[in-house]
Design a protein around this nucleic acid. Structure first.
Length: 500
RNA sequence: GGCGGCAUCGCCAAGUGGACUAAGGCCACGGUUUGCAAAACCGUUACCCUGGGUUCGAAUCCCAGUGCCGCCUCCA
Protein backbone atom coordinates (compact mmCIF):
# COMPACT_ATOMS: atom_id res chain seq x y z
CA UNK A 1 0.00 0.00 0.00
CA UNK A 2 1.39 3.36 -0.93
CA UNK A 3 -1.52 5.60 -0.14
CA UNK A 4 -0.46 9.00 1.09
CA UNK A 5 -2.47 11.70 2.78
CA UNK A 6 -1.59 15.29 3.43
CA UNK A 7 -1.83 15.52 7.17
CA UNK A 8 -2.86 18.99 8.30
CA UNK A 9 -1.23 18.62 11.67
CA UNK A 10 2.22 17.78 10.33
CA UNK A 11 1.74 19.76 7.12
CA UNK A 12 3.25 16.89 5.18
CA UNK A 13 2.19 14.13 2.90
CA UNK A 14 2.48 10.95 4.88
CA UNK A 15 2.17 7.31 4.10
CA UNK A 16 -1.13 6.12 5.47
CA UNK A 17 -0.89 3.43 8.11
CA UNK A 18 -3.90 2.78 10.29
CA UNK A 19 -3.70 2.07 13.98
CA UNK A 20 -5.07 -1.40 13.54
CA UNK A 21 -3.99 -3.18 10.42
CA UNK A 22 -6.73 -3.50 7.87
CA UNK A 23 -9.15 -1.27 9.74
CA UNK A 24 -9.76 2.45 9.51
CA UNK A 25 -11.66 4.60 11.94
CA UNK A 26 -12.81 7.80 10.35
CA UNK A 27 -14.77 10.73 11.69
CA UNK A 28 -15.98 13.63 9.60
CA UNK A 29 -17.67 16.73 10.93
CA UNK A 30 -21.23 16.64 9.69
CA UNK A 31 -23.72 19.38 8.99
CA UNK A 32 -25.68 21.55 11.35
CA UNK A 33 -29.17 20.82 10.17
CA UNK A 34 -30.95 24.13 10.26
CA UNK A 35 -31.19 24.67 6.51
CA UNK A 36 -30.95 22.87 3.20
CA UNK A 37 -27.47 21.68 2.27
CA UNK A 38 -25.47 23.80 -0.14
CA UNK A 39 -22.67 23.22 -2.62
CA UNK A 40 -20.09 23.61 0.11
CA UNK A 41 -21.52 20.55 1.79
CA UNK A 42 -21.35 18.80 -1.54
CA UNK A 43 -17.64 19.45 -1.96
CA UNK A 44 -16.83 18.37 1.53
CA UNK A 45 -18.86 15.21 1.64
CA UNK A 46 -18.13 14.12 -1.90
CA UNK A 47 -14.43 14.47 -1.12
CA UNK A 48 -14.67 12.37 2.00
CA UNK A 49 -16.95 9.89 0.30
CA UNK A 50 -14.28 9.23 -2.29
CA UNK A 51 -11.70 8.81 0.45
CA UNK A 52 -13.92 6.23 2.13
CA UNK A 53 -14.60 4.50 -1.15
CA UNK A 54 -10.94 4.35 -1.97
CA UNK A 55 -9.95 3.02 1.43
CA UNK A 56 -12.56 0.30 1.03
CA UNK A 57 -11.36 -0.40 -2.47
CA UNK A 58 -7.90 -0.94 -1.06
CA UNK A 59 -9.37 -3.52 1.26
CA UNK A 60 -9.64 -1.61 4.50
CA UNK A 61 -12.59 -2.21 6.71
CA UNK A 62 -13.71 1.34 7.33
CA UNK A 63 -16.04 2.62 10.00
CA UNK A 64 -17.18 6.01 8.83
CA UNK A 65 -18.88 8.21 11.39
CA UNK A 66 -20.36 11.55 10.49
CA UNK A 67 -22.31 13.47 13.07
CA UNK A 68 -25.54 15.37 12.66
CA UNK A 69 -25.41 18.54 14.68
CA UNK A 70 -28.94 19.11 15.83
CA UNK A 71 -28.23 21.45 18.67
CA UNK A 72 -27.33 24.83 17.37
CA UNK A 73 -24.14 26.72 17.47
CA UNK A 74 -24.61 30.35 18.20
CA UNK A 75 -25.65 32.87 15.62
CA UNK A 76 -23.11 35.60 15.98
CA UNK A 77 -20.58 35.07 18.66
CA UNK A 78 -19.58 32.32 20.93
CA UNK A 79 -21.16 33.58 24.07
CA UNK A 80 -24.50 35.20 23.53
CA UNK A 81 -27.76 35.04 21.72
CA UNK A 82 -29.88 32.34 20.20
CA UNK A 83 -28.48 29.40 18.43
CA UNK A 84 -29.20 28.94 14.77
CA UNK A 85 -31.55 26.06 15.17
CA UNK A 86 -33.62 27.89 17.73
CA UNK A 87 -33.70 31.03 15.66
CA UNK A 88 -34.82 29.16 12.61
CA UNK A 89 -37.37 27.07 14.48
CA UNK A 90 -38.90 30.20 15.89
CA UNK A 91 -39.07 31.76 12.48
CA UNK A 92 -40.69 28.73 10.89
CA UNK A 93 -42.89 28.14 13.93
CA UNK A 94 -41.66 24.60 14.39
CA UNK A 95 -40.44 22.56 17.27
CA UNK A 96 -36.65 22.45 17.11
CA UNK A 97 -36.88 18.68 16.83
CA UNK A 98 -39.23 19.06 13.91
CA UNK A 99 -37.00 21.51 12.14
CA UNK A 100 -33.99 19.35 12.62
CA UNK A 101 -35.81 16.35 11.24
CA UNK A 102 -36.82 18.20 8.09
CA UNK A 103 -33.31 19.32 7.32
CA UNK A 104 -31.71 16.05 8.27
CA UNK A 105 -33.88 14.35 5.69
CA UNK A 106 -33.08 17.05 3.18
CA UNK A 107 -29.41 16.51 3.83
CA UNK A 108 -29.52 12.78 3.19
CA UNK A 109 -31.69 13.27 0.16
CA UNK A 110 -29.11 15.52 -1.47
CA UNK A 111 -26.16 13.39 -0.43
CA UNK A 112 -27.87 10.35 -1.91
CA UNK A 113 -28.42 12.25 -5.14
CA UNK A 114 -24.72 13.03 -5.26
CA UNK A 115 -24.11 9.31 -4.96
CA UNK A 116 -22.38 9.57 -1.61
CA UNK A 117 -22.46 6.40 0.39
CA UNK A 118 -24.19 6.81 3.72
CA UNK A 119 -21.90 6.99 6.72
CA UNK A 120 -21.93 3.86 8.83
CA UNK A 121 -23.12 5.85 11.81
CA UNK A 122 -24.78 9.27 11.77
CA UNK A 123 -24.97 10.11 15.44
CA UNK A 124 -27.09 13.03 16.61
CA UNK A 125 -25.63 15.41 19.13
CA UNK A 126 -28.85 15.58 21.13
CA UNK A 127 -28.87 11.82 21.47
CA UNK A 128 -25.49 11.94 23.18
CA UNK A 129 -25.97 14.43 25.96
CA UNK A 130 -25.00 11.96 28.73
CA UNK A 131 -21.74 11.16 26.95
CA UNK A 132 -20.99 14.84 26.61
CA UNK A 133 -21.75 15.55 30.24
CA UNK A 134 -19.52 12.67 31.21
CA UNK A 135 -16.67 14.16 29.20
CA UNK A 136 -17.13 17.53 30.87
CA UNK A 137 -17.06 15.91 34.29
CA UNK A 138 -13.87 14.14 33.43
CA UNK A 139 -12.27 17.38 32.30
CA UNK A 140 -13.28 19.10 35.53
CA UNK A 141 -11.90 16.21 37.55
CA UNK A 142 -8.62 16.38 35.75
CA UNK A 143 -8.39 20.09 36.33
CA UNK A 144 -8.76 21.21 32.74
CA UNK A 145 -12.15 22.78 33.16
CA UNK A 146 -13.90 25.01 35.65
CA UNK A 147 -17.49 25.80 36.52
CA UNK A 148 -18.56 29.40 36.38
CA UNK A 149 -22.08 30.57 37.04
CA UNK A 150 -23.75 27.43 35.69
CA UNK A 151 -21.48 27.11 32.67
CA UNK A 152 -18.33 25.09 32.27
CA UNK A 153 -15.26 26.32 30.44
CA UNK A 154 -12.15 24.61 29.22
CA UNK A 155 -9.08 26.36 30.54
CA UNK A 156 -6.91 26.66 27.50
CA UNK A 157 -3.77 27.63 29.38
CA UNK A 158 -3.82 24.22 31.09
CA UNK A 159 -3.43 22.41 27.81
CA UNK A 160 0.09 23.09 26.65
CA UNK A 161 -0.36 21.87 23.13
CA UNK A 162 -3.30 24.10 22.34
CA UNK A 163 -2.60 25.52 18.90
CA UNK A 164 -0.67 22.60 17.51
CA UNK A 165 -3.11 22.01 14.69
CA UNK A 166 -3.82 25.56 13.61
CA UNK A 167 -0.33 26.86 14.29
CA UNK A 168 -1.66 29.48 16.62
CA UNK A 169 0.25 30.29 19.74
CA UNK A 170 -1.70 31.12 22.84
CA UNK A 171 0.20 34.36 23.36
CA UNK A 172 -0.69 35.41 19.85
CA UNK A 173 -4.39 34.98 20.22
CA UNK A 174 -5.31 38.55 20.69
CA UNK A 175 -7.57 38.82 23.65
CA UNK A 176 -10.97 40.10 22.74
CA UNK A 177 -9.97 40.81 19.17
CA UNK A 178 -13.35 39.86 17.85
CA UNK A 179 -14.83 38.14 20.83
CA UNK A 180 -16.52 40.09 23.51
CA UNK A 181 -14.89 39.65 26.84
CA UNK A 182 -16.95 37.27 28.88
CA UNK A 183 -16.55 37.92 32.59
CA UNK A 184 -17.38 34.29 33.37
CA UNK A 185 -14.17 33.16 31.75
CA UNK A 186 -10.80 33.21 33.40
CA UNK A 187 -9.20 33.86 30.06
CA UNK A 188 -10.82 35.09 26.84
CA UNK A 189 -9.64 32.02 24.86
CA UNK A 190 -11.26 29.59 27.22
CA UNK A 191 -14.10 27.93 25.44
CA UNK A 192 -17.45 26.67 26.63
CA UNK A 193 -17.95 22.98 27.28
CA UNK A 194 -21.38 23.51 28.76
CA UNK A 195 -23.57 26.58 28.72
CA UNK A 196 -26.15 27.61 31.22
CA UNK A 197 -29.57 27.92 29.54
CA UNK A 198 -31.31 31.24 29.89
CA UNK A 199 -35.04 30.98 30.60
CA UNK A 200 -36.03 31.53 26.98
CA UNK A 201 -33.72 28.82 25.69
CA UNK A 202 -35.90 25.85 24.73
CA UNK A 203 -33.22 23.29 23.97
CA UNK A 204 -32.03 22.45 27.46
CA UNK A 205 -30.91 19.46 29.43
CA UNK A 206 -30.36 18.75 33.07
CA UNK A 207 -26.76 18.58 34.14
CA UNK A 208 -24.75 18.60 37.35
CA UNK A 209 -24.34 22.37 36.79
CA UNK A 210 -27.98 23.13 36.26
CA UNK A 211 -30.02 23.23 33.08
CA UNK A 212 -28.06 23.99 29.98
CA UNK A 213 -26.81 22.79 26.65
CA UNK A 214 -23.49 21.48 25.35
CA UNK A 215 -20.77 23.68 23.92
CA UNK A 216 -20.12 23.49 20.25
CA UNK A 217 -16.94 21.45 20.13
CA UNK A 218 -17.99 18.86 22.59
CA UNK A 219 -20.18 16.57 20.54
CA UNK A 220 -17.45 15.55 18.11
CA UNK A 221 -15.10 14.56 20.89
CA UNK A 222 -17.78 12.64 22.73
CA UNK A 223 -19.26 10.84 19.77
CA UNK A 224 -16.04 9.97 18.01
CA UNK A 225 -14.78 8.43 21.24
CA UNK A 226 -17.98 6.51 21.72
CA UNK A 227 -18.04 4.95 18.27
CA UNK A 228 -14.42 4.92 17.21
CA UNK A 229 -12.41 4.88 20.39
CA UNK A 230 -10.10 7.34 22.06
CA UNK A 231 -7.60 7.42 19.23
CA UNK A 232 -8.85 7.49 15.68
CA UNK A 233 -7.15 7.22 12.32
CA UNK A 234 -8.75 9.98 10.30
CA UNK A 235 -10.63 13.09 11.22
CA UNK A 236 -11.97 15.13 8.36
CA UNK A 237 -13.67 18.43 8.03
CA UNK A 238 -13.68 21.77 6.33
CA UNK A 239 -10.64 23.98 6.48
CA UNK A 240 -12.60 26.69 8.22
CA UNK A 241 -13.13 24.35 11.12
CA UNK A 242 -9.47 23.92 11.81
CA UNK A 243 -9.66 26.76 14.26
CA UNK A 244 -11.25 26.90 16.65
CA UNK A 245 -13.36 23.78 16.28
CA UNK A 246 -10.76 21.10 15.67
CA UNK A 247 -8.20 22.75 17.88
CA UNK A 248 -10.71 22.63 20.71
CA UNK A 249 -11.62 19.05 19.95
CA UNK A 250 -7.99 18.09 20.30
CA UNK A 251 -7.73 19.95 23.58
CA UNK A 252 -10.83 18.30 25.05
CA UNK A 253 -10.10 14.81 23.86
CA UNK A 254 -6.41 14.71 24.59
CA UNK A 255 -6.82 16.36 27.95
CA UNK A 256 -9.38 13.72 28.83
CA UNK A 257 -7.55 10.66 27.53
CA UNK A 258 -3.85 11.59 27.50
CA UNK A 259 -3.71 10.03 24.08
CA UNK A 260 -3.20 11.36 20.59
CA UNK A 261 -6.74 11.95 19.46
CA UNK A 262 -6.29 11.80 15.68
CA UNK A 263 -3.52 10.39 13.54
CA UNK A 264 -4.42 12.00 10.22
CA UNK A 265 -6.22 15.31 9.99
CA UNK A 266 -7.70 15.83 6.57
CA UNK A 267 -9.13 19.21 5.65
CA UNK A 268 -10.88 20.06 2.46
CA UNK A 269 -10.89 23.50 0.95
CA UNK A 270 -13.80 25.82 0.44
CA UNK A 271 -16.22 26.62 -2.32
CA UNK A 272 -16.44 30.11 -3.73
CA UNK A 273 -19.26 31.39 -5.89
CA UNK A 274 -18.09 33.48 -8.79
CA UNK A 275 -14.87 34.08 -6.94
CA UNK A 276 -16.47 35.07 -3.67
CA UNK A 277 -16.48 33.13 -0.48
CA UNK A 278 -19.72 31.38 0.12
CA UNK A 279 -20.90 31.53 3.68
CA UNK A 280 -24.08 30.91 5.50
CA UNK A 281 -23.85 34.27 7.14
CA UNK A 282 -23.08 35.98 3.84
CA UNK A 283 -26.31 34.68 2.43
CA UNK A 284 -24.82 33.94 -0.98
CA UNK A 285 -24.96 30.23 -0.67
CA UNK A 286 -26.31 28.04 -3.41
CA UNK A 287 -28.40 25.18 -2.15
CA UNK A 288 -27.99 21.83 -3.78
CA UNK A 289 -31.67 21.68 -4.49
CA UNK A 290 -31.30 24.81 -6.61
CA UNK A 291 -28.13 23.60 -8.24
CA UNK A 292 -29.78 20.31 -9.16
CA UNK A 293 -32.42 22.17 -11.11
CA UNK A 294 -29.76 23.26 -13.51
CA UNK A 295 -27.17 20.49 -13.32
CA UNK A 296 -27.39 16.79 -12.85
CA UNK A 297 -26.07 15.75 -9.43
CA UNK A 298 -23.46 13.61 -11.12
CA UNK A 299 -22.25 16.65 -13.03
CA UNK A 300 -21.76 18.41 -9.73
CA UNK A 301 -19.99 15.39 -8.31
CA UNK A 302 -17.77 15.20 -11.37
CA UNK A 303 -17.07 18.91 -11.18
CA UNK A 304 -16.04 18.62 -7.56
CA UNK A 305 -13.76 15.70 -8.28
CA UNK A 306 -12.13 17.39 -11.24
CA UNK A 307 -10.12 19.51 -8.85
CA UNK A 308 -8.21 18.47 -5.79
CA UNK A 309 -10.00 18.36 -2.46
CA UNK A 310 -7.46 20.72 -0.91
CA UNK A 311 -7.90 23.34 -3.62
CA UNK A 312 -10.62 25.93 -3.44
CA UNK A 313 -13.34 25.38 -5.98
CA UNK A 314 -15.12 28.19 -7.75
CA UNK A 315 -18.69 27.47 -8.62
CA UNK A 316 -19.62 29.24 -11.83
CA UNK A 317 -21.94 28.43 -14.68
CA UNK A 318 -19.10 28.35 -17.19
CA UNK A 319 -17.17 25.82 -15.16
CA UNK A 320 -20.24 23.68 -14.55
CA UNK A 321 -21.19 23.77 -18.22
CA UNK A 322 -17.70 22.60 -19.13
CA UNK A 323 -17.93 19.81 -16.58
CA UNK A 324 -21.32 18.82 -17.92
CA UNK A 325 -19.94 18.42 -21.41
CA UNK A 326 -16.87 16.60 -20.26
CA UNK A 327 -18.89 14.12 -18.29
CA UNK A 328 -21.25 13.60 -21.16
CA UNK A 329 -18.30 12.76 -23.36
CA UNK A 330 -17.17 10.11 -20.95
CA UNK A 331 -20.69 8.76 -20.65
CA UNK A 332 -21.04 8.58 -24.40
CA UNK A 333 -18.06 6.31 -24.52
CA UNK A 334 -19.37 4.10 -21.75
CA UNK A 335 -22.72 3.96 -23.44
CA UNK A 336 -21.23 3.00 -26.79
CA UNK A 337 -19.16 0.40 -25.07
CA UNK A 338 -22.14 -1.12 -23.33
CA UNK A 339 -24.22 -1.01 -26.44
CA UNK A 340 -21.57 -2.72 -28.50
CA UNK A 341 -21.14 -5.32 -25.79
CA UNK A 342 -24.75 -6.28 -26.23
CA UNK A 343 -24.55 -6.42 -29.97
CA UNK A 344 -21.29 -8.33 -30.21
CA UNK A 345 -21.39 -12.04 -30.78
CA UNK A 346 -17.80 -13.10 -31.13
CA UNK A 347 -14.43 -11.60 -31.85
CA UNK A 348 -10.88 -11.26 -30.60
CA UNK A 349 -9.55 -10.52 -27.18
CA UNK A 350 -6.34 -8.81 -28.18
CA UNK A 351 -3.52 -9.11 -25.73
CA UNK A 352 -2.53 -5.47 -26.11
CA UNK A 353 -5.97 -4.34 -25.00
CA UNK A 354 -5.45 -6.13 -21.73
CA UNK A 355 -2.00 -4.68 -21.37
CA UNK A 356 -3.45 -1.23 -21.80
CA UNK A 357 -6.23 -1.87 -19.34
CA UNK A 358 -3.56 -2.76 -16.83
CA UNK A 359 -1.64 0.42 -17.55
CA UNK A 360 -4.63 2.68 -17.16
CA UNK A 361 -5.63 1.03 -13.95
CA UNK A 362 -2.14 1.43 -12.60
CA UNK A 363 -2.00 5.10 -13.54
CA UNK A 364 -5.41 5.70 -12.01
CA UNK A 365 -4.48 4.09 -8.73
CA UNK A 366 -1.16 5.92 -8.65
CA UNK A 367 -3.03 9.21 -8.86
CA UNK A 368 -5.41 8.19 -6.09
CA UNK A 369 -2.53 7.09 -3.92
CA UNK A 370 -1.05 10.58 -4.08
CA UNK A 371 -3.36 12.21 -1.57
CA UNK A 372 -6.48 11.34 -3.57
CA UNK A 373 -5.60 13.15 -6.76
CA UNK A 374 -9.02 12.78 -8.33
CA UNK A 375 -8.19 15.25 -11.04
CA UNK A 376 -5.34 13.08 -12.23
CA UNK A 377 -7.48 9.98 -11.91
CA UNK A 378 -10.17 11.51 -14.08
CA UNK A 379 -7.57 12.44 -16.67
CA UNK A 380 -6.67 8.76 -16.85
CA UNK A 381 -10.30 7.92 -17.44
CA UNK A 382 -10.38 10.33 -20.35
CA UNK A 383 -7.24 8.82 -21.80
CA UNK A 384 -8.90 5.46 -21.50
CA UNK A 385 -12.01 6.77 -23.19
CA UNK A 386 -10.03 8.05 -26.12
CA UNK A 387 -8.51 4.62 -26.50
CA UNK A 388 -11.83 2.85 -26.17
CA UNK A 389 -13.50 5.10 -28.71
CA UNK A 390 -10.72 4.42 -31.17
CA UNK A 391 -11.09 0.73 -30.52
CA UNK A 392 -14.84 0.84 -31.07
CA UNK A 393 -14.32 2.92 -34.20
CA UNK A 394 -11.72 0.60 -35.61
CA UNK A 395 -14.32 -1.90 -36.70
CA UNK A 396 -12.20 -4.76 -35.48
CA UNK A 397 -14.25 -7.52 -33.99
CA UNK A 398 -13.62 -7.37 -30.28
CA UNK A 399 -14.98 -10.19 -28.22
CA UNK A 400 -17.87 -9.74 -25.86
CA UNK A 401 -15.67 -10.85 -23.00
CA UNK A 402 -13.10 -8.21 -23.82
CA UNK A 403 -15.70 -5.44 -24.01
CA UNK A 404 -17.18 -6.61 -20.74
CA UNK A 405 -13.78 -6.42 -19.14
CA UNK A 406 -13.33 -2.84 -20.31
CA UNK A 407 -16.73 -1.98 -18.92
CA UNK A 408 -15.75 -3.62 -15.67
CA UNK A 409 -12.75 -1.31 -15.50
CA UNK A 410 -14.99 1.75 -15.87
CA UNK A 411 -17.26 0.36 -13.25
CA UNK A 412 -14.40 -0.29 -10.87
CA UNK A 413 -12.51 2.99 -11.26
CA UNK A 414 -15.19 5.42 -12.32
CA UNK A 415 -17.99 3.68 -10.48
CA UNK A 416 -16.84 2.03 -7.28
CA UNK A 417 -14.08 4.52 -6.49
CA UNK A 418 -15.18 7.85 -7.90
CA UNK A 419 -18.90 7.20 -7.95
CA UNK A 420 -19.45 9.01 -11.23
CA UNK A 421 -20.09 6.15 -13.65
CA UNK A 422 -23.49 4.67 -12.94
CA UNK A 423 -23.94 0.97 -12.74
CA UNK A 424 -25.02 -0.78 -15.82
CA UNK A 425 -28.77 -0.76 -15.92
CA UNK A 426 -30.96 -2.12 -18.61
CA UNK A 427 -28.94 -0.67 -21.41
CA UNK A 428 -31.46 -1.63 -24.04
CA UNK A 429 -34.23 0.37 -22.44
CA UNK A 430 -31.83 3.13 -21.65
CA UNK A 431 -30.86 3.47 -25.27
CA UNK A 432 -34.34 3.55 -26.59
CA UNK A 433 -35.35 6.27 -24.26
CA UNK A 434 -32.34 8.49 -23.92
CA UNK A 435 -28.91 7.85 -25.09
CA UNK A 436 -27.37 10.16 -22.61
CA UNK A 437 -27.18 8.58 -19.18
CA UNK A 438 -26.80 12.12 -18.01
CA UNK A 439 -30.45 12.82 -18.46
CA UNK A 440 -32.09 12.84 -15.10
CA UNK A 441 -35.72 12.73 -16.10
CA UNK A 442 -35.51 9.11 -16.95
CA UNK A 443 -37.42 7.44 -19.66
CA UNK A 444 -40.13 6.25 -17.38
CA UNK A 445 -41.70 9.61 -18.05
CA UNK A 446 -41.80 8.96 -21.77
CA UNK A 447 -45.00 7.40 -22.90
CA UNK A 448 -45.04 4.51 -25.28
CA UNK A 449 -46.93 6.80 -27.56
CA UNK A 450 -43.95 9.15 -27.79
CA UNK A 451 -41.62 6.27 -28.50
CA UNK A 452 -43.96 5.00 -31.22
CA UNK A 453 -44.28 8.40 -32.80
CA UNK A 454 -40.53 8.84 -32.78
CA UNK A 455 -40.14 5.49 -34.45
CA UNK A 456 -42.57 6.53 -37.18
CA UNK A 457 -40.64 9.74 -37.76
CA UNK A 458 -37.32 7.98 -37.84
CA UNK A 459 -38.58 5.32 -40.22
CA UNK A 460 -40.07 7.94 -42.50
CA UNK A 461 -36.85 9.89 -42.50
CA UNK A 462 -34.85 6.76 -43.25
CA UNK A 463 -36.95 6.14 -46.32
CA UNK A 464 -36.38 9.73 -47.43
CA UNK A 465 -32.65 9.35 -46.96
CA UNK A 466 -32.59 6.11 -48.88
CA UNK A 467 -34.20 7.84 -51.81
CA UNK A 468 -31.85 10.79 -51.37
CA UNK A 469 -34.58 13.25 -50.47
CA UNK A 470 -32.22 14.94 -48.08
CA UNK A 471 -34.08 18.20 -47.91
CA UNK A 472 -37.10 16.57 -46.36
CA UNK A 473 -34.91 14.41 -44.14
CA UNK A 474 -33.08 17.48 -42.86
CA UNK A 475 -36.37 19.28 -42.41
CA UNK A 476 -37.56 16.58 -40.02
CA UNK A 477 -34.28 16.63 -38.14
CA UNK A 478 -34.25 20.41 -37.83
CA UNK A 479 -37.83 20.55 -36.65
CA UNK A 480 -37.12 17.93 -34.03
CA UNK A 481 -34.05 19.83 -32.88
CA UNK A 482 -36.20 22.89 -32.45
CA UNK A 483 -38.49 21.06 -30.06
CA UNK A 484 -35.57 19.60 -28.16
CA UNK A 485 -34.98 16.22 -29.72
CA UNK A 486 -31.65 15.40 -31.32
CA UNK A 487 -31.18 12.69 -33.92
CA UNK A 488 -28.06 10.68 -34.37
CA UNK A 489 -27.58 8.79 -37.62
CA UNK A 490 -25.50 5.72 -37.20
CA UNK A 491 -24.53 3.31 -39.97
CA UNK A 492 -27.38 0.95 -39.30
CA UNK A 493 -29.93 2.94 -37.32
CA UNK A 494 -30.92 6.32 -35.98
CA UNK A 495 -31.04 7.09 -32.28
CA UNK A 496 -32.73 10.01 -30.59
CA UNK A 497 -32.42 11.83 -27.32
CA UNK A 498 -33.90 14.77 -25.58
CA UNK A 499 -31.66 17.75 -25.28
CA UNK A 500 -31.78 20.72 -22.98
C1' G B 1 -2.74 43.32 13.77
C1' G B 2 -1.64 37.69 13.99
C1' C B 3 -1.67 32.79 11.34
C1' G B 4 -2.02 30.16 6.72
C1' G B 5 -2.77 29.27 1.47
C1' C B 6 -2.71 30.25 -3.73
C1' A B 7 -0.73 32.55 -8.59
C1' U B 8 0.39 26.94 -14.61
C1' C B 9 -2.55 27.59 -22.20
C1' G B 10 -8.71 31.94 -23.89
C1' C B 11 -11.46 29.28 -19.42
C1' C B 12 -11.29 25.09 -15.67
C1' A B 13 -7.35 22.14 -13.71
C1' A B 14 -3.06 18.30 -12.58
C1' G B 15 2.05 18.34 -11.87
C1' U B 16 5.90 20.57 -6.34
C1' G B 17 13.88 19.43 -8.13
C1' G B 18 15.71 15.62 -13.76
C1' A B 19 12.00 11.09 -19.36
C1' C B 20 8.01 18.87 -18.27
C1' U B 21 10.13 19.69 -25.56
C1' A B 22 4.01 20.81 -18.65
C1' A B 23 -1.68 15.68 -17.96
C1' G B 24 -6.80 15.98 -18.62
C1' G B 25 -11.54 18.72 -19.56
C1' C B 26 -14.05 23.06 -21.98
C1' C B 27 -13.62 26.52 -26.00
C1' A B 28 -11.34 27.69 -30.94
C1' C B 29 -9.13 26.33 -35.59
C1' G B 30 -7.54 22.55 -39.41
C1' G B 31 -8.17 17.40 -41.06
C1' U B 32 -10.54 12.21 -41.28
C1' U B 33 -15.47 10.22 -41.21
C1' U B 34 -20.77 11.64 -42.69
C1' G B 35 -25.52 12.86 -48.30
C1' C B 36 -25.14 17.04 -44.69
C1' A B 37 -24.94 16.88 -39.41
C1' A B 38 -24.05 14.77 -34.58
C1' A B 39 -20.74 11.63 -32.16
C1' A B 40 -15.83 9.82 -32.64
C1' C B 41 -10.67 10.02 -34.12
C1' C B 42 -6.05 12.83 -35.61
C1' G B 43 -3.53 17.56 -35.36
C1' U B 44 -2.58 22.88 -33.67
C1' U B 45 -2.49 26.43 -29.03
C1' A B 46 1.78 27.64 -22.25
C1' C B 47 8.84 28.49 -21.31
C1' C B 48 4.58 27.84 -15.51
C1' C B 49 2.88 36.25 -11.75
C1' U B 50 7.68 39.59 -11.48
C1' G B 51 12.86 40.14 -9.89
C1' G B 52 16.92 37.88 -7.57
C1' G B 53 19.28 33.32 -5.56
C1' U B 54 20.51 27.84 -4.60
C1' U B 55 21.65 23.64 -7.99
C1' C B 56 24.97 20.05 -13.09
C1' G B 57 19.53 20.78 -13.47
C1' A B 58 13.51 24.53 -10.96
C1' A B 59 6.89 25.43 -12.77
C1' U B 60 8.74 22.62 -8.60
C1' C B 61 13.55 24.83 -3.21
C1' C B 62 15.08 29.96 -0.84
C1' C B 63 14.54 35.51 -0.59
C1' A B 64 12.01 39.98 -2.09
C1' G B 65 7.92 42.16 -4.60
C1' U B 66 2.94 42.25 -6.78
C1' G B 67 -1.97 40.26 -6.87
C1' C B 68 -5.86 37.14 -4.95
C1' C B 69 -8.00 34.20 -1.05
C1' G B 70 -8.99 31.79 3.71
C1' C B 71 -8.80 31.61 9.14
C1' C B 72 -8.52 34.50 13.80
C1' U B 73 -17.15 34.90 15.22
C1' C B 74 -21.21 30.18 13.48
C1' C B 75 -20.13 28.06 8.73
C1' A B 76 -18.47 22.08 4.81
Amino acid sequence: MTLKFYNSITKKKELFKPLVEGRVSMYVCGPTVYDHPHIGHAKSYVSFDVIVRYLRYLGYKVRYVQNITDVGHLTDNADAGDDKILARARRERLEPAELVEIYTRSYFEDMDALNNLRPDISPRATAHIPEQIELVEKLIEKGYAYVSNGSVYFEVSKFREYGKLSGRKQEELEAGARIEINPEKRNPHDFALWKRAEPAHIMRWKSPWGEGFPGWHLECSAMSTKYLGEAIDIHGGGLENMFPHHECEIAQSEAATDMTFVRYWIHNNMVTVNGQKMGKSLGNFVTLKDAFKKYHPLTIRFFILSSHYRSPLDFSNEALDAADKGLERMFNTVKRLRQQTDETKNGDSPQNVYEKIGQYKKAFLAAMDEDINTSGAIAVLFDLSKEVNALLDSGKGISKKCLEDINALYQELGGDILGIVPKRKDVKAELEIKWSILESDSGEGDSNMLKDVMQVLIDTRSELRKTKQFQMADFIRNKLTEIGIALDDKPDATAWKKIK
